[in-house]
């Protein structure tokens, strides 16, 4: 029994160590933290200019626009997710040494979500207001993003891990992960749309919650397996 308690502590050390390192790296690079957010805001700004500044039109498309912008902002941050770690060799050390690899992968994704998905979620109601999104839809929009962005980050992580050693990784990454983002997009947008038309948004939100729990428990295994291939390439 003593041994298993000790093992548990080792696992916790492994998880915490990776999380601490990745958060330090992320917050050590404020521009990388701010860029996806700035991108999110700029894309949102383009829609009233490109489509129509009419409040009614904006309100109708606000959920979709916010979600697509969030999706693209997530995608933007993914390319660099494992690349630097691969180039400096820390990725191969992680793959080689960590037992199990699942834990540092979860920590890595959690850290990445903290600096991408979380700020997007927090910023969304403000931008929703700028797009004239119905006030009662703002909370469902936020909840949807809070549940949906972890799934986006995880699925994106699979794509990032699969393309980590490749020269033409960026465009390929978009092709790999965007189709997988479709259900999250649909559910997230519907939650906000249902709420803005006065209907309860709980259905799609519950589906998103189910999807998030499923993704959090299973997708890191796929990322870990993909990373093992990624460090082999060179």
């Amino acid at each position: 029994m003593m041994a298993s308690a000790a093992d548990e502590r080792s696992l916790w050390v492994l998880f915490r160590g990776q999380l601490r390192r990745d958060l330090k790296l992320a917050f050590g690079q404020p521009s990388e933290l701010a860029n996806p957010l700035a991108f999110f805001v700029v894309v949102i700004t383009l829609f009233p200019l490109g489509v129509s500044p009419e409040p009614g039109v904006l309100a109708g498309m606000a959920p979709g626009v916010l979600w697509i912008a969030a999706l693209l902002a997530t995608l933007l941050g993914l390319e660099a997710l494992f690349r630097r770690d691969r180039d400096d060799g820390t990725l191969e050390q992680m793959v080689l040494r960590a037992q199990p690899l699942y834990l540092p992968v979860v920590a890595r994704m959690l850290a990445h979500w903290t600096v991408t998905g979380l700020p997007l979620t927090l910023l969304a109601p403000l931008l929703g207001g700028m797009l004239n999104l119905a006030p009662e839809a703002r909370l469902p929009l936020m909840l949807g993003l809070a549940l949906g962005t972890p799934v986006l980050v995880l699925l994106g992580g699979v794509g990032a891990a699969l393309t980590v050693g490749l020269r033409a990784g960026g465009v390929l990454l978009a092709l790999l992960v965007l189709p997988l983002f479709v259900p999250v997009l649909i559910l997230g947008v519907s939650a906000a749309e249902l709420a803005s038309s006065g209907l309860p948004p709980s259905g799609p939100l519950l589906w998103l919650a189910a999807g998030a729990s499923f993704a959090i428990t299973t997708v890191p295994f796929a990322i870990a397996a993909a990373l093992r291939i990624g460090v082999e390439v060179g």
């Binding site: 796929a222 993909a226 082999e232």
Partner: peptide, 22 residues
């Protein structure tokens, strides 16, 4: 696209396998 991007066929195979399963 993924298979074409990875030069070593063995690595490409396993990468595509993961993607196909996901």
């Amino acid at each position: 696209g993924l298979r074409r991007a990875i030069e070593r066929p063995e690595a490409a195979g396993r990468a595509c396998a993961i993607l196909a399963i996901v």
